[in-house]
Computed example of a mutant assay.
Amino acid sequence: MNNNIIDVLVVGAGPSGTALAIDLVRRGLNIRIIDKAAKSFDGSRAKGVQPRTLEVLQDLGALKDVLAAGCDYPLLGIHIGPLTIPWRMMSTDKPKSDIPFPNTLLIPQFRTDAALHACLNELGKQVEFDTQLIEISQDNDAATAILSAPEGTETVTARYVVGADGGSSAIRQKLGIAFTGSTHEEDRMIIVDAVTTGLSRKRWHIWPGSSGQFIAACPLPNSELFQWMIRLSPEEQPKLDLPDLNERIQKRLRSSKVLMHSIRWKSVFRPNIRLAEQYRVGRIFLAGDAAHVHTPAGAQGLNTGIQDAYNLCGFHGHLATHSMSI
């Protein structure tokens, strides 16, 4: 066999791919991890890390940075006219011997990514950003990927490849794996991370509206940012520039005191509920959003993705040894 072959090529450096890379490297495997983006994702998106995922992060060595960057979920403040009704979205429990981290942590995704990338760097590996998978093939012994980077194209041979490259996974599409489910175009939402003044940071604010319309603002810990969520009407074509967003918010809140000063990240979110028909073809695996996408409730995507990676590498030993039978 080619002596230049690596053990695993990980495609996608979000939480799933990076968690997998960390686990593989600490087991002594020779890996590379690539991402087509020019830099790490800088939005909040999935902002809840669940108890079991915190245990996984502890084992991987990334927990200290994650805990330092997050906090407990604040009380909701439901604004109805002049009234603000406090409500706790989830109960809080004390640690136990069998449940060391009983509560979901509020932490924006960009800080979770940063903690995982730092952990990987400490192990001597770095994400190769601005590097895209162009083609992939395989035989009984290995998989071969053609990569494109600013320096040119490169052919990489690996014993295994893991596609952790998101809901629009290039690897899943190239393998021809169906991604069955639905996309809810009628249930869209603007999500904006913005420095905001005029709001208490002790509450996750919600302004309910008719027909399920609402505006919400969640304070992101250790920052001046709020994650704003604005549900759209079915056929609406929203304006996403700063003045229009401020006008919309102030009109709905009936207050000119609440003001976005700068936008870090923005998106129009469409709920997807999809599942890949298979997670593996020969020596190529899928993990995270490449394999399954969820509603935004509870940051299911991030948490199941990290646990995919941990299970794939550790519990079942699929990638932790060189001698796995096909």
Rank of each mutant, 00 (worst) to 15 (best):
Leu83Gly: 07
Gly61Ile: 08
Leu83Ser: 11
His79Arg: 13
Asp72Gly: 11
Ala68Arg: 09
Trp87Arg: 13
Ala62Met: 00
Glu55Gly: 06
Thr84Met: 06
Ala62His: 03
Ala62Glu: 02
Thr84Arg: 10
Trp87Tyr: 15
Ala68His: 08
His79Ile: 10
Asp59Ile: 07
Val56Arg: 01
Gly81Thr: 03
Ala69Met: 06
Gly81Ser: 05
Arg88Ala: 15
Leu76Gly: 04
Gly77Asp: 00
Ile78Asn: 00
Val56Lys: 02
Leu76Asp: 07
Leu76Pro: 02
His79Asn: 07
Val66Trp: 01
His79Cys: 06
Lys64Met: 06
His79Ala: 09
Lys64Asp: 15
Tyr73Arg: 05
Gly81Lys: 09
Gly77Gln: 01
Asp65Val: 04
Tyr73Val: 09
Tyr73Asp: 06
Pro74Asp: 05
His79Asp: 02
Gly81Ala: 07
Asp72Arg: 10
Gly77Thr: 01
Trp87Ser: 15
Gly61Thr: 07
Arg88Gly: 14
Pro82Lys: 12
Leu83Trp: 10
Met89Phe: 15
Leu83Val: 11
Trp87Asp: 12
Ile85Val: 14
Val56Met: 00
Thr84Tyr: 01
Leu76Arg: 02
Asp72Gln: 11
Met89Lys: 11
Tyr73Thr: 08
Pro82Gly: 06
Leu57Pro: 00
Val56Asn: 01
Gly61Arg: 08
Ile80Cys: 02
Val56Ala: 02
Ala68Thr: 06
Lys64Asn: 14
Leu75Trp: 08
Arg88Lys: 15
Pro86Cys: 07
Gly61Glu: 06
Leu76Phe: 11
Leu60Gln: 13
Val56Gln: 02
Leu75Gln: 12
Leu67Asn: 07
Ala69Thr: 06
Ile80His: 03
Glu55Ser: 09
Pro74Val: 04
Cys71Gln: 14
Glu55Cys: 09
Leu67Arg: 05
Gly70Val: 01
Ile80Tyr: 04
Leu67Cys: 05
Arg88Cys: 14
Ile78Val: 02
Met89Tyr: 14
Gly61Asp: 07
Leu83Tyr: 14
Pro74Ala: 06
Ala62Gln: 03
Gly61Ala: 08
Pro86Asp: 11
Ala62Ser: 07
Ala68Glu: 12
Ala62Arg: 01
Val66Asp: 03
Trp87Lys: 15
Ala62Val: 01
Ile78Asp: 00
Leu60Arg: 07
Trp87Asn: 13
